[in-house]
Design a protein around this nucleic acid. Structure first.
Lengths: 96, 96
DNA sequence: TATTATGGTTTATATCATAAACTTGTTTAT
DNA sequence: ATAAACAAGTTTATGATATAAACCATAATA
């Protein structure tokens, strides 16, 4: 130790990190599922998903499931790489 | 998984986490040492140390080393416990 | 036809992080 | 002796961020 590596500010936020964590292990996940799993409000989730998409960390696809709107999210290779880098950086702060 | 545990907002910030990480493994450390190790500005460090002290996570003692002012910081038991809890919570977000 | 529910988005505000400016005192140069 | 530069911090101004509340659109229900 040490030389603390910079922590990607986009991932260093609990809701966004939780979303990325969830998306890392599945092909894709729906908005409602993410909201329930994270316990977040829909508004907050909507804002944070936008930021992750803008950064290229996830893709968001909207369609309809019958008559209901459906928002599906998936992590991108860029997002996976960023998450891996983030975890590596975290290890310069805490012993895992 | 999962049930993401809440991340102590006081520790979920890079400079404060770096400081706590440094203090966790020593009896005490001086302001200048912490500034150099973290690469932070003095102003930012000053503010963040205050917050950690206010939370009871560290103690700050001021004295003089010859004629120079000296600020020494040490982690408290409360701070150590909070750090341990934080690490545990982090593990609900990332696989270690 | 209201009313409630579903699936979100927009935006207002309060908090936070940070650098810049400042303070207090010391050492060095002139 | 005076001025200039340095050391160790602190204070503050402001820009960015996180979040809940308010809102919108459509669908199902009473």
């Amino acid at each position: 130790m040490t030389d603390f590596k910079e922590l990607d500010p986009l991932l260093h936020q609990s809701l966004r990190l939780a979303v990325m964590s969830l998306l890392a292990s599945v092909v894709s996940a729906e908005f409602v599922y993410l909201r329930e799993k994270t316990g977040s409000t829909a508004g907050n989730l909507s804002v944070q998903l936008d930021k992750l998409q803008t950064a290229g960390y996830i893709t968001i696809v909207k369609d309809f499931n019958g008559k209901k709107p459906r928002t599906s999210c998936a992590i991108t290779p860029v997002g996976k790489a960023a998450l891996a880098t983030y975890v590596t950086a975290l290890k310069t702060y805490i012993q895992l």
